[in-house]
């Protein structure tokens, strides 16, 4: 478990997943993390259907031009305090699509990212680790209030 985490979690993290043009590789690994093998729901991590309910935004894909304003709008719709995790190499650096004319990404160019998860696609373990790191950040933000 990530360092600095209080013994009892103040709240369960609700996660919203947004695909900004990825190849589905990361998306299926995110769902795999929610399924019985990894079962993150036992930690209170839950995938929700609306950004307005979410604490954490999991974003995959390199942000295509058509998705740019949609990604921004989703980020704005999330209540504070909020955190963003960028999953996968293409969202972090562009990866194999780096030179494409249709990308606005990496995600950093569109919205602020807190945790970068590398891998193409990352293992579910890495994604869970990233969410745990976000937890620490959100707890600190909450404590400052």
């Amino acid at each position: 478990m990530a360092k600095g985490l209080p013994k009892s979690f103040k709240k369960a993290l609700w996660v919203y997943h947004c695909n900004s043009g990825s190849c589905n590789g990361c998306d299926i690994e995110i769902i795999a993390a929610l399924c019985p093998r990894y079962d993150v729901e036992r930690f209170g991590i839950k995938l929700v259907g609306s950004p307005r309910h979410a604490d954490v935004l999991l974003i995959t894909g390199p942000v295509t031009r058509q998705m740019e304003d949609k990604v921004k709008r989703i980020f704005e719709q999330m209540p504070d305090p909020k955190a963003v995790i960028c999953v996968g190499n293409c969202g972090n650096t562009g990866d194999v699509f780096y030179e494409s004319y249709n990308l606005v990404g990496p995600v950093d160019n569109v919205i602020p990212v807190d945790v970068h998860v590398i891998g193409c696609p990352p293992l579910p373990e890495s994604i869970i680790m990233a969410v745990a790191k976000e937890w620490v950040k959100l707890e600190t933000l909450e404590a400052k209030k």
């Binding site: 990825s22 390199p62 295509t64 194999v96 699509f97 494409s100 004319y101 249709n102």
Partner: peptide, 14 residues
């Protein structure tokens, strides 16, 4: 459609 267009064929020709 077109939300996931990443110009793969274009990049491939290079």
């Amino acid at each position: 459609l077109g939300h996931v267009h990443r110009a793969i064929e274009w990049a491939g020709m290079r």
